[in-house]
Design a protein around this nucleic acid. Sequence first.
DNA 1: TAGATTGTTAATCGATTAACAATC
DNA 2: TAGATTGTTAATCGATTAACAATC
Lengths: 214, 214
Amino acid sequence: MKESKENAVISRATVDRLPLYFRTLKLSQEEGLEIISSDELGRKIGVTPEQIRKDLSAFGEFGKKGVGYYVQELMRNIGEILGLNRNWNLAIVGVGHMGWALANYSNFSSQGFQIRAIFDIDDDKIGRYINEVEIFHIDNMKEIIQKCDIQIGIITVPVSYAQDMANRLVEAGVKGIWNFAPMKINVPANIYVVSEDLSIGLSSISYYLSRQNS
Amino acid sequence: MKESKENAVISRATVDRLPLYFRTLKLSQEEGLEIISSDELGRKIGVTPEQIRKDLSAFGEFGKKGVGYYVQELMRNIGEILGLNRNWNLAIVGVGHMGWALANYSNFSSQGFQIRAIFDIDDDKIGRYINEVEIFHIDNMKEIIQKCDIQIGIITVPVSYAQDMANRLVEAGVKGIWNFAPMKINVPANIYVVSEDLSIGLSSISYYLSRQNS
DNA sequence: TAGATTGTTAATCGATTAACAATC
DNA sequence: TAGATTGTTAATCGATTAACAATC
């Protein structure tokens, strides 16, 4: 058994497929499956078995030739690779519709993501709680984020405020930002940003349906 | 001036960048900008100017050599390519947190996406309105979708119901599905599905932060 | 005209797919 | 053992980047 190849550069595409593998393995485990082949896993996800084997090979050897993968074991390994065995403390910035929805979304906690604080600017909201998490004024961001050891900030404010909120989050010490404002936000190179751009999905549906009809 | 190249196959990556171009042009227009170069546009979006020119060249010639692109004109052209000049009627299936958030998100309508109906299974919700849109029982889906000429369905139900809802939407006649349930849904080949998988974003942040610390 | 910038072809880079030896 | 399936190397495919002629 080789050492895991921690130093190799892994493509973004590969990293983005790991959560799909993880989640499908979890479902399979809940169904009582103990062993799964790359072929079967691929069919469930909609990915080729070669793709799965290639992706996994970047991190080590997790399967048994002629047999397949032990569901529990592979799940644990992928979970570790993704850092899902850790506990991550999150903060939501902006209690609009999206912020509210995310604050109420309970599935995060099952994967180690705990929302510890919520920030807003509206005095009517400050001091209230969503799912037992308090809403603070953004002026207290630095203090709260450091006290609660929050590593990841979620931006759910309008575009015009997003860059300012990103600056404050970085200044407060977060290392990762999950951005729902439909714009590019600029941060120092050591901060990792993922943007969820919902308008892309809808526009691409519009694009493909337009072609179909015409 | 050549005819637009309607028949060429356009890569998914290109189509997914068009909404970014569109939105950035819109902001530029609102700032009063009349002409923009691929260089400047690229800087605003975080994409190379070559990428932009290449993407656009798949659809036609929209710029003026030595000058740049007329903001309004390019915006109108990209809007047409994406089908944003049309009116799309949408239905939301499932009034959970995400469904509720999307139902309240008013920005869609500014790009021609109108939510015409909402479906749920909970009798307490049936007959109520969100933003003047009525909530119907899913058993009335086919009737309502045909009456309102709804082309796009949005799935915001739990994983265990998602495939059934997709089947019902297809049966009712929608042509596109925007899926927020974290799973692969199977549909006939002529139906276009875009899945928004929010857990990927969070997991990838977890992955990269894990590398950084260790 | 000279400088700027597009549209496009060619070169490079990276990701996916195919093939197959290793081995359970 | 024979059949199955992994891990990995090589081949292919596709997307991005570089370069530059065309032209405003």
